[in-house]
Each structure stands twice: as structure tokens, then as C-alpha cells.
Write a protein that binds this DNA or RNA. Structure first.
Lengths: 126, 126
DNA sequence: GATTTTTTGTTTGCTAGCTAGCATAATTGT
DNA sequence: ACAATTATGCTAGCTAGCAAACAAAAAATC
């Protein structure tokens, strides 16, 4: 993804933010946090890069002034239209592999990461 | 790994370097490149951190003065002895999962990453 | 023997992840 | 109504990845 996006000076996480705004419209920054599963501080930097490049606007909410609503700018919409389709990546990686084997791989990885997340959660609570 | 190593102010890639030096003794920096599968520039930063902390020494080779031989210092050896066993991570993640399913997951992932590496290799050549 | 190419390592500047700590705003409890 | 707590976002400082460009040394070529 990063290699495909490099000509546009966009990283993969920045792409995900644009994707969200392009598909669901304006979104609260705090909601993106849940969707992207990254830390507040990290998202802050990513959004900062998009704002700096003029692709995204950050508008404080009128009701809760802590929260910020993210919206694509005209320049952002234009760039989004120029970005290449990235689905070829998934095709290259997985086309032709047995569906059952892919399902098994997903199950194994979900189990393992779930257990490690749980371990980490307990560790940081204690 | 990072969470377990944080109390010792060591990152996971730094750990791999120490592991290599602890098990195989002094190693050329260029050989570590192949072992860790990262870029020259990245390794340079990681080694820099270890040297700065006084855990590793960087000695220019007498024959080929471009190359640098990495060696653990006394402080590095001491720290290595204090680091916890990290094999519990693998146990937490995978214990009890069917061996055949794990093998399938490995096969699927190796195929996918192999294809993507190949795609990237062709892309950067052209 | 001199020139060109290749190899090795570093630096710079970027993305992206983390924790810790701060400010501000909203909410909750008393 | 005021105080304490919680929520949101930011900054600073770190690890770790990348590409591009540079310097120095060695190797290859002419």
C-alpha cells in the first residue's frame, strides 16, 4: 500500500482516514479512533499531516467543543478521485489460495492476537 | 515483546541484535542486514542506539575498513543476563491450537508475503 | 595506473506506532 | 454551586520502518 501511495505523498493510515471520509462523510475524530484501532496521540499526528496538506478540515463541534469533526476539503476530494484502486494488492496476495485455508489462517491469527491483546490489557491494568 | 522489554529501555529490534551477538559472538553489521531483513539505514539507527547506550561496540574491520564488526560490551553482556525469557509470548499466542492449523496459517502467509515481495521487487526494478 | 562502479555505513526527512504528561471541556458527585 | 473525575486532543520523546543522497573504501574495468 505504501509503495502504491508514495507517488501521491500519502501513507496507508492517511489513506484509511480519507477512505472513511469519502465513504461515510464527516466523522468525529474520536470515532475514527475506534475504527482505526490506534492511540489518540498517533491519530493526532496523522490528522495533523492531512490538515497540513490541506486535504482534511478539523472543525470543533458546537455542542461538545472538545470533539473535532473531520471533513474532506475540495482538494481532498480531488486527490481521492486520482488515487489508484488498491484492491489489486489483495488479489496478488491471496488469489488462487484455497478458501478454507485462508479461513483457517484468519482463525489462527484472530485467536493469537486476541490472546495477546488480553495479556497486554491485564498487564497494563495491574 | 516491546511491552516486556520496556522496563529495560530496549526495543524488539535492539533485542534481536543483542540476541545475535550473545549467541554467535561478534558479527559484521552487513551480515546482520541479511539476518534482520531490514534496510541499511534502519539498522544504522538501531545500532546507533545500542552504541549510545554503551551496550555494543562498533569496530572498523582491519582488512576492509568500510565494514564494521559489532561486539557486545561488558555492560551489554550484563544487561543481556538480566533480560526476561520472552518465549512465554509464543506460548500465550499459540498453545493449544491445532498444529495442522498453525502449519496452514504459516503456509498461507508465506505464500502471500512471497508474492507481495516479488511484486515489490519487480516494481522497484522497473 | 587511472577511472568508474560497487559496497558499506551514515544522515536527513518522512510515516506510523507507543507512553507520559498537559490543557481544556464536559460530566458527575457531593 | 463547586469540586473531583472523565474525555478529548495535543506535544514531546522514543522505536522502527522506508527512500534518497552522500562519503569513503574497495573492486572492477579500461
Amino acid at each position: 500500500m505504501d509503495a502504491a501511495l508514495r507517488p501521491y505523498d500519502i501513507g496507508s493510515t492517511q489513506w484509511y482516514v480519507l477512505y472513511q471520509l469519502a465513504h461515510d462523510g464527516p466523522t468525529m475524530q474520536r470515532d475514527l479512533l475506534r475504527m482505526l484501532q490506534i492511540e489518540r496521540a498517533t491519530l493526532s499526528i496523522v490528522i495533523g499531516a492531512l490538515v497540513r496538506k490541506g486535504l482534511v478540515e478539523q472543525v470543533p463541534d458546537s455542542i461538545d467543543r472538545r470533539q473535532k469533526r473531520l471533513r474532506m476539503t475540495a482538494a481532498g476530494t480531488t486527490l481521492w478521485g486520482e488515487l489508484p484502486d488498491l484492491t489489486f494488492i489483495r488479489r496478488v496476495a491471496f488469489d488462487g489460495i484455497d478458501q478454507a485455508e485462508i479461513a483457517t489462517a484468519i482463525k489462527v491469527l484472530q485467536t493469537a492476537t486476541g490472546r495477546l491483546d488480553e495479556l497486554l490489557r491485564r498487564g497494563t491494568d495491574a
